[in-house]
Design a protein around this nucleic acid. Structure first.
Length: 195
DNA sequence: TTGCCGATTACCT
DNA sequence: GGTAATCGGCAAC
């Protein structure tokens, strides 16, 4: 069990953070129990200049308030009337960029995850941005939390360094509306571990 | 105040 | 492959 990644880790270039998060462990402690999974898919969202980002054009609404926090906070939003998605805010205060966590390989607390998810198979426990939120009990109350051991929501460093050739970059999912930005290669997956 | 649509998922054919 | 579910955010009016 590694120490949680420091705020400094997140306050860097967003694409780099998205790459470096692959292989790390996302942990949510619920009622004293660790629910955790290995991060195997991420997407970078580049703020004001990125038409796919919620903060495109410097939009500063109530929903996206936590994206303006310093890197190392959680940005959790509600979508499609029923799902939550979890992001890690990157860069500095007032630089609203973030990394969406798109998929986990479940590691700890599988029984609790199965109970929360009621999925047909363990493959479907956390292989999607809204699925992993449900599996780990992440919801609106997690929005804006600092990622550290005090809040019980944090990320632990990868045990082993991930070789660059294990990382595949490609276009982001579900952002066809974003014009040129839709094609930017800001989606990162760990080869053969993303499903 | 209205109306469109979403950083998705699950279930259908 | 297609689409219902389900409702808040957002921009236009």
């Amino acid at each position: 069990m590694a120490r949680p990644l420091s705020m400094r880790f997140f306050q860097r270039d967003t694409s780099q953070v998205a790459r470096d998060l692959l292989g790390c462990t996302l942990v949510h402690i619920v009622k004293g129990k660790r629910l955790a999974g290995r991060i195997v898919e991420t997407e970078a969202y580049l703020g004001a200049k990125d038409r796919a980002a919620h903060t495109f054009g410097g939009r500063h609404t109530d929903r996206v308030r936590s994206m303006y926090l310093a890197g190392g906070h959680a940005y959790v939003y509600f979508v499609y009337g029923m799902h939550y998605c979890f992001n890690v805010v990157t860069r500095k205060f007032n630089e609203p960029e973030a990394v969406l966590i798109r998929a986990l390989q479940p590691l700890e607390g599988l029984e609790d995850m199965r109970r929360k998810r009621r999925a047909k198979s363990d493959r479907d426990l956390a292989n999607g941005p809204a699925k992993l939120c449900e599996a780990l009990g992440i919801n609106r109350s997690c929005d804006g939390l600092a990622l550290n051991s005090e809040t019980g929501l944090f990320i632990e460093a990868a045990r082993n360094k991930i070789a660059p050739d294990l990382i595949v970059a490609g276009p982001r999912v579900g952002v066809d509306y974003a014009g040129e930005a839709a094609a930017w290669p800001l989606r990162f997956t760990l080869k053969a571990l993303n499903k």
